[in-house]
Design a protein around this nucleic acid. Structure first.
Lengths: 156, 156
DNA sequence: TGCGATTTAATCGCGCGCGATTTATTTTCA
DNA sequence: TGAAAATAAATCGCGCGCGATTAAATCGCA
């Protein structure tokens, strides 16, 4: 260190078009707008669709367990799951082994919805205009970014 | 076409971990959580920060004009900008040339906030744990994805 | 010129995300 | 054993996003 402030945080004007965070933010908006008409037909919102995906992969999970996979907590999930329950897609039952936990199970109607959902991924892939290989690489990069951000937030 | 249904939409079970949309969604959540404590000190939310960025680049824009850059509309922006106005960061004035438009201008306090904001980008870059080159490439890919999705939504 | 079409912002309701707090249950260990 | 700590879900308030609608100003053009 031959200069003072060698470790000072560099100061530059933040610009929308050069920030990755805005690219991610606006891509999220774009995905939502793509999914909206598709999921409307199934009576789901996008976050509700995510919860259903997790349950289709493994039925009967607790709220925290769902939250670990979705990076959400009970303050978001509880009302969301209650809406899925009101729609007849899931049931909410207290775990008899541990009364603190609420187990979320698919109803027959909830399992049935997977049939309709199974044609969603191909529609979305088509809309991106990218190859499956490109999408896979991009997914890996964005997932890596996410995990890096999460690590930084956790250690702070 | 030697078979029936050659153009049928392929049906596969949607899985959370292999979907790019969830990677984007969860990276957005992670960015928000990273920005929260940083922006809290400036008294801004992340979407408010985006609006300020656009104004720091060019002061005195209409609501729709801001919306075009942010991919948002007046139903989102009007209340957001009113909160920025209440915080003393911007003014809202009807354009005398076209009374339909509301021009949003930075106040002295709003311009002053750029000084604090100028150390945000470097902090965020550091948190990603990625090089500036990597971030640039990823930003370009995600922007391309976003624009592809937007094109697909528009033509639908 | 005047009237319908267009543009712009604002308003309203709903469903997230999330910080903060509360309640109920289980675990820990003195 | 029993009280404190930890864990799980729920509740509450606020700020987005956004579909739908409304109100006001401007434009187009017959």
């Amino acid at each position: 260190m031959t200069k003072r402030n060698a470790n000072a945080i560099p100061r530059i004007q933040p610009k929308l078009e050069q920030s990755l965070c805005f690219a991610i933010y606006s891509a999220g908006l774009a995905f939502n707008r793509l999914y909206k008409p598709i999921l409307d037909e199934m009576g789901l919102t996008y976050p509700q669709y995510l919860v259903m995906m997790v349950l289709w992969e493994r039925d009967g999970q607790g709220v925290s367990e769902l939250g670990e996979q979705l990076f959400l907590e009970s303050n978001t999930l509880t009302p969301l799951i209650k809406r899925l329950e009101a729609a007849g897609l899931v049931t909410r039952t207290r775990d008899t082994e541990d009364e603190r936990q609420v187990l979320v199970h698919l109803t027959a109607q909830g399992r049935e919805l997977l049939k309709e959902a199974s044609c969603v991924p191909a529609q979305v892939v088509a809309a991106t205009g990218m190859s499956v290989e490109q999408l896979g690489k991009l997914k890996a990069s964005v997932t890596g970014l996410r995990d890096g951000l999460r690590a930084a937030v956790d250690e702070a």
